[in-house]
């Protein structure tokens, strides 16, 4: 596992140097959503017995953790493969694909945790009564793991920057809207909500919401998240082994 910490600490150094930039950039989108839907549209609306703000804060934490972790790994890997070619530094070094993958994923998770944390704080400031318990923290971490691993796999597989942005528009964006973020899945016709259970983010949203509202946590959902994460991590490592990345 030599090299893992070096890969990780290189990305952490970059995060430290651009902390303010990352923090601000990670804040804009979720903040808009929080104000528009949580405070604007949702004022006085109740969903399933809680205020709409309390309903969507866990959803927005999930979605910003997803976006931040995914891009931190996926976009930067893609750029370092295709444009700066700095990925070759890691590829030609005597370290294992596992060490590179874990280093990248863990660093990506940090970015996701940062984004999630910001929303959490904003949520509390806006007056959402939510509990940040152990279960919620674990789910937030698993969420970041899942999407950092997805970023690893996609960033190593898709060829161009354009493909990356298409993936974001066609997969991540719809998931952000339909993955149990803004409305309860039960409010949709049965067939449709069944489809939405296929989205990884759905499982994060519903379990995180349950944890933060002190409800029963859907165990199956919590298990699905790390399993998917491990699958993507494995696929990413396989891409490293295959070569021809740059």
């Amino acid at each position: 596992m030599r090299g893992f910490y070096t890969v990780f600490s290189r990305d952490m150094l970059s995060l430290r140097r651009r902390f303010t930039k990352h923090a601000l950039a990670g804040m804009v989108n979720p903040l808009l959503l929080l104000i528009a839907f949580g405070l604007g549209l949702g004022r006085g609306v109740k969903v399933g017995g809680v205020s709409y703000l309390e309903f969507i804060v866990p959803g927005i934490i999930a979605l910003s953790g997803m976006t931040a972790s995914f891009s931190a790994v996926g976009i930067s890997l893609n750029i370092s493969r295709r444009y700066t070619k700095t990925l070759e530094i890691l590829l030609t070094a005597p370290i294992s694909p596992l060490a590179v993958s874990l280093g990248k994923v863990l660093a990506g998770m940090m970015r996701g945790v940062l984004s999630s944390g910001i929303i959490l704080i904003l949520g509390f400031i806006f007056g959402a009564k939510l509990s940040l318990n152990m279960a919620a923290i674990v789910i937030i971490l698993l969420n970041c793991f899942l999407f950092a691993s997805l970023g690893l796999y996609i960033g190593l597989t898709l060829w161009s920057h354009e493909d990356m942005s298409n993936f974001t528009t066609m997969v991540l964006l719809p998931m952000a809207f339909f993955g149990g973020t803004f409305f309860p899945l039960e409010s949709l016709p049965l067939g449709f909500s069944a489809i939405l259970y296929l989205l990884p983010l759905t499982h994060v949203s519903i379990s995180l919401r349950a944890a933060m509202l002190g409800l029963d946590i859907p165990v199956a959902s919590i298990l699905i998240i790390p399993v998917l994460g491990i699958i993507f991590l494995y696929l990413g490592m396989r891409a490293f082994r295959k070569g021809d990345l740059t």
Partner: peptide, 11 residues
């Protein structure tokens, strides 16, 4: 390896 392109870590 000294590659053809200058793939130094610019940051």
């Amino acid at each position: 390896l000294v590659p053809q392109y200058l793939n130094l870590d610019q940051e």
